[in-house]
Amino acid sequence: MTDLMIEADDVGKKFGEVAALTGVDLGVPRGTVLGLLGHNGAGKTTLVNILSTVLPPSDGTARVAGHDVVREGHEVRRRIGLTGQFASVDEQLTGEENLVMIARLLGADRRQARQRSGELLEAFDLTAAAKRKASTYSGGMRRRLDLASSLIGHPEVVFLDEPTTGLDPASRVALWEIVEGLVGDGTTVLLTTQYLEEADRLADQITVLSAGRVVAAGTAAQLKADVGQRTVTVVLEEPADASPALRALREAGLAPMHDAERHALTTPVESSRQLAVVVRALDDVNVDFVELNLHEPTLDDVYLTLTGRQAA
C-alpha cells in the first residue's frame, strides 16, 4: 500500500476556454500537512474541489486515500472531510442538529450520532451553544462548527479551503491548534491559504500555485533558501559614520543600502558567514554600531519572488 494519501498526476481543469489548472502534480504522505499557497484566482479552490470529487478534472488523474477521484468518487467521499471557503452549516438548525445530521448521513445511528456530536461540540468549545441555531453564531463559531462537521466521520484526509479567512487572531490560533491536533492523530491535511504565516506554521510541505500552475514546491525552509535573500542590517551609533561605513562595505564586495531615517545599513549576504565580513569591514574603519541583525527571508519574500517571476 502506498503511503501517499493525496496524489495528483498532471491534473488540469478548464472552464470553457479558460484553464484554471494546468499540469498540477502533488504527493502528500499520510499524517502530514500540505500547504497550498496562492492568491485569489490561483486555482486553489478548483484543486480542492477536484480532489474532494466535487468537480471532475479535465486532464490527468488524482487519487485520494488510495481511490481515484473520478472512478471511485463514492469511496473517496467516505474518507474525506471538506471545509470550504464559506462556512457550510445549516443556519436553520442548531449546532448539535447540524452535527447529528451529518453523522446520520454518514451511517451513524441516532445514539452514535448524538454521542459523536457531543464529543466534537466539547472539543470545539461549542457545548454551551449546542442548542442554539447556527444563524446566531459568530464567524469563529461557525467556522468551528463547519470544521467539526467535516471531522465527524473520522476522515482520513481533510481539506481545508482557506479555513481562517475572516477570523479574528484568537480564533485563527485556536484553529491552528485544532489542525495540529488532527495531524498528531494521523490525519492528512491539505490546507489552502493566502497567509504565509499560516503555511509556515502548519505545513510540512508547501506548494505554491500561481495562475493554475505549480511554481514551487518544498518545505518552508527549502523555499526560503531557494529564492529568499538573507540580509544583514547594521544600525549605526553615529549617523555621521554612514558614508565611511557604506564605502567600507562596498570595498568588501557587498551591496549595502542606506536607510537614513533609522541610521541603518542593509546589505544582502550569501551566507551567514558573511556576517563576519560585515563586522570586519566596519571594524577596519572604526565604526561603532548598536545593532546587528541577520534576517532570514520570510515566506512573503518567497511568495512575491515566485509569483512575480511567473508574471514576468
Partner: peptide, 12 residues
C-alpha cells in the same frame, strides 16, 4: 488542544 481523534482511531 482539542481532542478530535480522527484517522488513527480507525474511524467511526
Amino acid at each position: 488542544r482539542p481532542t478530535v481523534r480522527t484517522a488513527e482511531s480507525g474511524g467511526a
